[in-house]
Design a protein around this nucleic acid. Structure first.
Lengths: 154, 154
DNA sequence: GGGATTGGTTGTTGTCATATAACCATTATA
DNA sequence: TATAATGGTTATATGACAACAACCAATCCC
């Protein structure tokens, strides 16, 4: 009985809401950040930096110009140029001129690049044990609530 | 109707569990990683790298020797030496020899360092809007379930 | 006492990411 | 057609972190 002696009909709910949100946030952050380190797993498995792996993953949805890739990685053109250089040398992507605008270079995943990208996705998508071991009913509830937290929820 | 045509009494529940865990994991990762960038906020507010801020935060619980600090940051001694150098120059920590073992240096937060560390904690603890705007009943449920996911849950 | 161990420091090297400026080729526009 | 804007490339500098090797001083242990 530390916070709410009884269900609290209306007004005191605000402080509760903030406190709960903070606790939930802390727990989620702990789970995602200090749990099993998927980031490291990706870099070690693929032998490329996480940032480069991210570039590969962005290309899974389809080819992009370097300009578009820059935007999706939230970085600048020179950086993108270097990253694509590197990925090209590794045989993960190819560069080709855009048919309609010869200024643009279209970056496309090779089969090897697709493999690497999918491997990265698989590693990142693997949930930690704690989630898998949750009681089925609780996980189902969690699933329903988390769906409402996603960007495309409302 | 791809997976479960009807509630699925028993055996197919395993695949559901995995799928749900994956979805929940993806949603949590998205919220923590690609949401409001607290990391950047910390580095920009304090003017030090996130790693250094982490060192400060670790010291909030009390002074540590550099060896202990190394362990908590999961880094090596040379790196710790440099970090403490930097934080010392900024006036955030002091180095003093351990009274019982003169090999050890005890790193202690200064008042300014404590301020900075607490500021970082405050920024990191601030939950994203999505959580605060969740329906109270849902947040309460989330709170209850997340508590069971924490390390010290049985 | 003497050798091994431990805690820190210094220095080197390499990778990664950020930021800028300068430049070239292509396209759009006045 | 002349000029500006856009997409990429090249070059340079900087800062952060990782991984080592080598070293000094204090402590531990035989």
């Amino acid at each position: 009985m530390t916070e709410t002696p009884h269900p609290a009909p209306d007004p005191p709910g605000d402080a509760d809401q903030a406190a709960r949100a903070a606790r939930v946030w802390a727990a989620m952050s702990a789970l995602v950040l200090t749990g099993e380190d998927r980031r490291k797993e990706v870099t070690e498995t693929l032998g490329i930096s996480f940032f480069r792996a991210k570039a590969l993953r962005r290309l899974l949805a389809g080819p992009l110009t370097q300009r578009e890739l820059s935007a999706r990685l939230a970085t600048d053109k020179p950086q993108t140029s270097l990253i694509v250089d590197d990925l090209e040398q590794r045989g993960y992507v190819t560069r080709s001129v855009h048919p309609d605008d010869r200024r643009c270079k279209v970056v496309t995943l090779t089969p090897a690049g697709t493999d690497a990208a999918e491997q990265a996705e698989r590693i990142l998508a693997r949930p930690p044990r704690a989630l898998l071991e949750l009681a089925p009913e609780e996980l189902a509830v969690l699933d329903r609530i988390m769906a409402r937290l996603s960007p495309e929820a409302p």
